[in-house]
Design a protein around this nucleic acid. Sequence first.
DNA 1: CGTCGTCTTGAACTGCGTCAAATTACGTGG
DNA 2: CCACGTAATTTGACGCAGTTCAAGACGACG
Lengths: 272, 272
Amino acid sequence: MNAIPRDRQEAAGVPGCGAAADNRCALCGGREACLPSLFHSDDNAAFERMVAGKRRIERHASLFRANDKFDTFYIVRVGQFKEFVLDPASVQRVVRFYMPGDIVGFDGVATGVHSSRVMALEDSEVCEVPYAQVRKAMHDHPRFLDRFLAAMSATLLDQHQHTRLLTLPSLDGRFACFLLYLSANYARMGYSDTAFRLAMSRSDIGSYLGTTVETVSRLIARFNAQHAVRIERRMVQILDRAKLIAMIDNTAADRCPVPAPTEDRQPEMPVH
Amino acid sequence: MNAIPRDRQEAAGVPGCGAAADNRCALCGGREACLPSLFHSDDNAAFERMVAGKRRIERHASLFRANDKFDTFYIVRVGQFKEFVLDPASVQRVVRFYMPGDIVGFDGVATGVHSSRVMALEDSEVCEVPYAQVRKAMHDHPRFLDRFLAAMSATLLDQHQHTRLLTLPSLDGRFACFLLYLSANYARMGYSDTAFRLAMSRSDIGSYLGTTVETVSRLIARFNAQHAVRIERRMVQILDRAKLIAMIDNTAADRCPVPAPTEDRQPEMPVH
DNA sequence: CGTCGTCTTGAACTGCGTCAAATTACGTGG
DNA sequence: CCACGTAATTTGACGCAGTTCAAGACGACG
């Protein structure tokens, strides 16, 4: 997710799995890295001045909705969120999930208005950081500027990962990718990367993977049968990580086979 | 694409269609808005100092590749680009297209290294803007800081659009969406939004839509037969825009039907 | 213990991927 | 200017993965 600087996330086929950061926020103090190294080598006190306050968000309550005014960033302290847009038929399209340490709100900077809705998947808590303060801090602390830009850029990389996931030809690959992505994020937060609880419903997963609830169910059944994982209700155990990775690679084969461009000029006819 | 501030792009089902900007870059002077209002109300001269130079990129040559060092942004002056990553099987996954006025390189900020490859679809030209200069300008000119952040945020919104496109259940919807997106972008550049040339191959389109070349071919044939468009070779004419929009909406119906959440607390069972 | 919602399972249908071959476009060299 | 070769694009036939519709199972809570 957008925890930064996401220490050199590798470009392999699998979502980034940065090491767990360990910078305690003086405000939060929780055991989660609630603001992952964004400020620590610089001026920690500066950050604390930036934080306007904390806010609790009940399960299923929204942090903000599409068309709400944007003037505040949120850093997830505890809990998880889903971000989604509503398509014409009022169907949710989950665009991403947020976990502790992630920064929420970048989408609003462009227009001053939020373009999507962010809803808590469980009882959660966030730090509020007014955009005005962030701007000021960026001006005053060059290092903070860098870190902040890096954070924003990292969310772009996350989006790319999601895009890659969505273009995997088989659902097996997508689901495997999704599980590894969760695993990596739990690792980043300092939890087990082989056993964790899903905060999201089957519907949310289906939406995120670009498929239906039923198919998600069947995917789970199949993965369980193959002993790659053990998913029961919302508990997940990863039993055979290698098998999951293999599922991504195998299914990725020749789709839109633009041949691997080792040289710069790939063979294609010029346009008249 | 990431031309900014993307004047309040609407949240409707269709990719953003900002109005055509009209700020001439003193350096480029081309009739395309090569740097869309990023600097104009502030200090135009400041920008010109920022631009290190221009660079020509031949068709099929790369602006940069994955793992190349990042230290420069590029603003597309003329031509078009595709950005893609290679999956394990060395297959291209097109993540986005760039058109004149778009800023390229945000992905590199997070790690200092590019995560994808950007290749010219036709003979092109870009302005080079060193990251160091941008940082300095952000520090010196608060308004520029705002604009730059807005630009970055806008690319995030673009990615969301792509994600939404990819989760449309039917290929018809995706392709319709793609055509409207191109149309909107040509409009933004001041060209006709009903007749234009595709810079990308069928393969690239297939990759962008998450499908195969063959299916793209069939989509085109079907759309032609329905007189929604007239696509011949790489020339596109949009004949019935309403029909295209309808194709998106119709196919968007109940997929992962999380009911429209008008109230904040949508009905779902608490987790034990 | 009954109701409600989520999740799972079943069966039938179909859109799209896959493989294969034909066709067209375009650049090259004669 | 024409003939040829390469690569892109189109078209056809077939099979399967995944959607759809429908019903049932499970767990939570009143």
